[in-house]
Each structure stands twice: as C-alpha cells, then as structure tokens.
C-alpha cells in the first residue's frame, strides 16, 4: 500500500513522515518519529496513556489517524520540559511521589497541563473529572490529584 506523506509540527518543530493510511498518530510517534513517551495501554482510547494535544486539544493519539496530523500542531510529553528545566507539574509529581510504575505518568502529565492551561484554579472534582480518562492502577489517584492542585496553587502564586 502506498505511503502517505504528512507534514506536521511536533513540540514546535516541523516534522515530516510517511505513513500507512491505517496508522494511528501513536503508531508514528512511537515508530518512525521515535517519541516513545506516549504509551500504548489499550489502543482504544480508554486508558489515556497516549495523551497528546492536537492544536491544544487533549486527545488520545491512538484514536487519531496519523494522516490527520497534516498541518496541525502536536504536543507530546517530550515537549513538556524546557531544556533541563522540568515543568512545574513534572517537578511536583516527583516531590509528591505521584507516580509509582510511571507508565501512565506521561499521559497524566499531558492531560494535567492541558487542564491547568484552561483552568488555573480547578477544584478537586474538576481535577478528578478531567483526569477520568487517564487510568492509573498504582496510586489510587490520591497523590496525582494532590500534585495537580498544589502545582496549580504554585503557578497561580508565581503568576501574581
């Protein structure tokens, strides 16, 4: 089957790739593009481990066709830190032990960042419902929710 050429922007950089029409965005991120931070936990949009943003919208990369990336901007976990400077959410997750095995962590971080960009002062309920698409089997979510709320508070303080 002939491959399709796609030009897109990933973490701010122009990128091109060839893909099969049936490839998902996750397939090309993890395959030819070598961005393995997004994980495949289910391939059906139920676990959120492959969360990325597409033009700022939070999506499961496994549910987006690779060809749909044409002309759009993708942000992945690999673009979250600036140089060796972790994003406040990344730092807070480490300080508060909000990860155990770490497989869901990239997706949770991408989703949480997306939340705080929309809502800098989320309630616990808002955090819980926003992250309801990101399965974590290790933590029971307690430390994740606390880390997101504390980060939000820190970021609000820093922005004053």
């Amino acid at each position: 089957m002939a491959k399709t050429h796609v030009s897109t922007t990933i973490n701010g950089d122009p990128r091109e790739f060839l893909c099969d029409p049936a490839d998902s965005l996750l397939d090309v991120l993890r395959g030819p593009l070598g961005l393995t931070g997004a994980k495949e936990g289910c391939g059906s949009g139920d676990c959120g481990a492959c969360s990325v943003t597409l033009d700022g919208r939070l999506v499961c990369a496994c549910l987006v066709l690779a060809v749909e990336a044409e002309g759009h901007e993708i942000q992945t976990i690999e673009g979250m830190a600036t140089g060796d400077h972790l994003h406040p959410l990344q730092q807070k997750f480490l300080e508060m032990a909000a990860l155990q095995c770490g497989i869901c962590t990239p997706g949770v971080l991408v989703a949480a960042k997306s939340l705080l960009e929309r809502n800098p002062d989320p309630s616990e309920t808002e955090v819980r419902y926003w992250l309801a698409g990101n399965l974590c089997r290790c933590t029971g979510y307690d430390k994740i929710v606390r880390a997101v709320m504390e980060t939000a508070a820190d970021m609000r303080e820093a922005a004053r």
Binding site: T36, E40, T76, I103
Partner: peptide
C-alpha cells in the same frame, strides 16, 4: 524522608525505557 526517586526525571519526561520502547 520523602526523597526524589533516582529514576524520577526519566519517568516524568517520557524517556524511561519500558519494554515496548
């Protein structure tokens, strides 16, 4: 002490290598 785990940075940046990676 609640120290920061030695394998933490790679796990929050997506660089930690799991088997499928």
């Amino acid at each position: 002490r609640n120290t920061i785990r030695p394998d933490g940075a790679e796990k929050v940046t997506g660089r930690a290598a799991y088997a499928a990676d």
